[in-house]
Design a protein around this nucleic acid. Structure first.
Lengths: 344, 344
DNA sequence: TTGAAAGCGGTACCAC
DNA sequence: GTGGTACCGCTTTCAA
């Protein structure tokens, strides 16, 4: 029991009266071992609480049994879900999760490269690491870009952004007949946001409506949304609709405007993107696009975990338009977006 | 240059025309090396882009150069800040961060124990791992309990909760003359919350006011707060004040009540705990207690990083009462709480 | 100062 | 089937 302190294969072998090779074979279930030996060794292993040392195994097997996740730093539910989805999948496979926050630091590329030397595979959130660094990394170990497009042939796991945002925007333009929409988010901030911005513009083009306003640049946290609300109120007449790049910002804008006495959706329409849990709970409930956040992360983890035998493949997961009250609709119905499909 | 693929100490030694021992000494700056050798080796190292393998080092040095962080799973800004504060400190020390979310799984103790075999030190969020498991772990490697009290002699890094919550509650009872307060949060959910609940009760005892309501059990996320609001509205007359165990819940309650047309603080007072960024931005701004979240995490990381030479010490960091508008105060002034002090 | 060699803990090949 | 042994890549005595 318990005295697993200085317990090594050699020590186990001695105690069980067998060779180290046999102990290793039994523990790993590899090679041929007679049932008799097997039982003897297993008992001894259990009795002495032997657990092979990760360092020795890693060295011998030339792998770390760990995979890394790189993200910008986290605040709200989006990153929370992402991390949990990732971690759950990795831990279930008996591997370890390393994390690295870039914090928008300038030297983060080097730190990512350093981290890459300690893991068997790397998941990088879109927009957190330079294309150049991603390409270099991909030459050294399996890399998957999560929520973004990888440079070159680097595979990526992402959700359908463009068409979903186009559908959402078209809903506002056509169904609600709105003319004056504003986009909140930084198109050059991350690949996801960039695609959503493109979808927003595409909807205007498709329907032949002029796009009057330039996007309001804002980071993706709820507090950034509050500040956008303040800014919009100060700037003059509100637009008819505020199309936010993500839910957290939208919730911030909503809170900010409601606090100032603006009625939603009567005075102004607000929409989000992600469908985080809060989106369905606020009043008015947020019209948004549902994105399978945990599944994106889980799929990324799975691809990396089996990367030694099976090179990662790009995936585009479907999203779904979720109509609620904040756009002016009375009830709550769903419109299904694109089905799952592979990247070209 | 780049060809760091199969570059080992032995290969470097051959290329530089020296022994592996010398390469190791030069790289690590240990032992005595003549300046001439030193230069020759350094050049060669740079020229061939040699980087020692972490696995080999770990095995030889009998350490992992990694530390672990165990938390329940994350959603909002509180855990986000915690993780970032921790990660920043660890990465600056060239070490790696392993994470494990318990997800409230029943088998999480085993997973924590498994994780402990891959790191040199472990930070455990209060309430995520059983006391029994924490004690076992502490016998095998340095362990620090973050935001909670460790069992036995296990050191902990936490913020002052009890007196701060007592001060906040007293403010409501005395300054605002409120009588009917309700506490939102699960006293048995985590050590932090338990202490805040005790402070809430202490304030009632101190001032000789009866405590009329039982706590509303709720998890700590914003969405849980929204549901609490719904529940309170359904249940009958609102209390005079809703004292939430943390800001995220308070923000949810606030959003929920405002959405239902309740005026804050006129109809009901709401307070939080943590002082996350949103707390100061909502309308009305939230009266709360400021807690140095990042610093708690950073201090925990620092203690673990130097644990091999310097056993971790318990720390109690100060908190600060932050009076804003949601309690009914007009302006916004601060009252300083307890100064920093050591745990007994 | 420098180098040869013995580990660190496991794995796996190669004989018996 | 089983055991001896040579690695995996690096650090660190111990001699020279």
């Amino acid at each position: 029991m318990s005295n697993s302190h200085r317990m090594t294969v050699r020590e186990m072998a001695r105690l069980a009266g067998v060779s180290v090779a046999t102990v290793s074979r039994v523990f790993n279930g590899t090679g041929q071992v007679s049932e008799e030996m097997r039982q003897r060794v297993l008992e001894s292993i259990k009795a002495h609480g032997y657990q092979p040392d990760h360092r020795g195994r890693a060295l011998a097997a030339r792998r770390h049994n760990a995979i890394g996740l790189v993200f910008p730093g986290l605040a709200g539910p989006y990153f929370g879900e992402l991390i949990q989805g990732f971690e759950l999948e990795v831990v279930q496979s008996q591997a370890a999760v390393h994390i690295l926050c870039t914090h928008m630091r300038s030297d983060s590329d080097e730190q990512v490269i350093e981290m890459a030397r300690r893991v068997d595979g790397l998941a990088v959130l879109g927009g957190t690491v330079s294309d150049d660094a991603v390409l270099r990394l991909a030459g050294a170990l399996p890399v998957v870009v999560l929520a973004g497009k990888g440079p070159g042939a680097v595979p990526s796991i992402r959700a359908e952004n463009h068409d979903a945002m186009r559908a959402l925007t078209t809903h506002l333009l056509e169904t609600h007949g709105l003319r004056d929409l504003i986009f909140v988010g930084s198109p050059d901030g991350s690949p996801d946001i960039s695609e959503r911005w493109d979808g927003f513009r595409a909807a205007h083009r498709d329907t032949g409506r002029a796009q009057r306003r330039r996007p309001v640049r804002a980071a993706l946290r709820q507090e950034d949304g509050v500040q956008v609300a303040t800014q919009l109120l100060k700037r003059g007449p509100l637009p008819q609709a505020i199309v936010c790049a993500n839910d957290e910002t939208a919730l911030g804008v909503l809170v900010g405007l409601l606090g100032a006495g603006v009625r939603v959706p009567e005075d102004v329409v607000i929409t989000g993107f992600d469908d985080v849990q809060m989106a369905g709970l606020v009043a008015p409930a947020l019209t948004t696009v549902r994105q399978p956040i945990r599944e994106l992360a889980a799929e990324t983890a799975r691809q990396l975990l089996r990367a030694s035998t099976d090179p990662p493949q790009s995936r585009l997961l479907p999203t779904e338009l979720v109509i609620r009250r904040s756009c002016g609709c009375a009830g709550a119905r769903n419109t299904t977006g694109d089905p799952a499909r592979r990247d070209p």
